[in-house]
Amino acid sequence: MSASTIVPLRDVRLSMTEAVALVEPGHTLGLGGTLLYRRPVAFVYELLRQAAPPADLTLLSFTAGYASDLLVGAGNISRIQTCYFGLEVFGLAPMFTHRVNRGEVQVIEETEASLALGIRATLSGVGFIPSQAWIGTDMFQLRPDVRTVVDPYSGEELVAFPPVTCDVAVIHALVADRRGNARLNKNLGIDPELAAISRQTIITAEEVVETLTEDVHIPAVLVSGVVHAPRGAWPTSCYPHYPIDGEEVLRYIDACASEQFAEYVCQVAACAQ
């Protein structure tokens, strides 16, 4: 008998409680999906259900929406790294707007290019990626840490986008296998690259199967844990399984407008009280 037949297949399945314990105070937490699409909402609910959720987090989200707003409202986020924070056609993200207006959280002002190229810098292992973006705008006043370089060939001044890094990324998948391979839908956002730049990546999945053999967007080698989370993106969408629950998004907005944020969170996250 060869040795390989007795080595068990890797199994990285976790409970949601085990998964949220991977997030430590001060971490950069990356949320997969975009806007109101395929966000890891069940993970965020579980995080908020903890007696003492990790604080002083940096939230990294290409575009931030409902799930991010819950974390910001709950006070766990000190810094927000995004290029858009809102509820799309539903309007402003209430707790983000409220807390930033009061100076309670810091925004690390990003754009599509600074995030995409900052991710590329990390993936390439270089200190920056140059771009024509931002030159002539006020972005450098909002991000004094971002510098420019001179193109050695043309002499043109270019922005030098610094690397974007992440400690724990959480990505909701349509299906994952127990080794960590995950399949998304076509609305990828930055998820394949986010998994690659993060020190740890957690997959929450509508379905967990024995083995995936095709159409894998995130290979197991990048994945630390898989959590079975049916309807785990609700009330954001998980195409083609379910659309956005617009009524729930409006219920959230109304709760915030009547200063019932804490009550809303307790209800959806089913807190112990």
């Binding site: 575009t63 995004t82 290029c83 858009y84 924070f85 809102g86 402003l92 993200a93 983000f96 707007t97 930033v100 207006n101 009061r102 100076g103 810091q106 925004v107 002002e109 990003e110 754009t111 599509e112 290019a113 600074s114 771009s131 024509q132 973006a133 931002w134 030159i135 002539g136 705008t137 972005m139 006043q141 909002l142």
Partner: peptide
């Protein structure tokens, strides 16, 4: 006052990137 704006907006998305070219 960027640290305490009168109204924070969602953000500029890709406009600072695209508008320059």
């Amino acid at each position: 006052d960027y640290a305490r704006p009168r109204l924070r907006l969602p953000g500029a998305g890709g406009i600072p990137d695209v508008s320059v070219f």
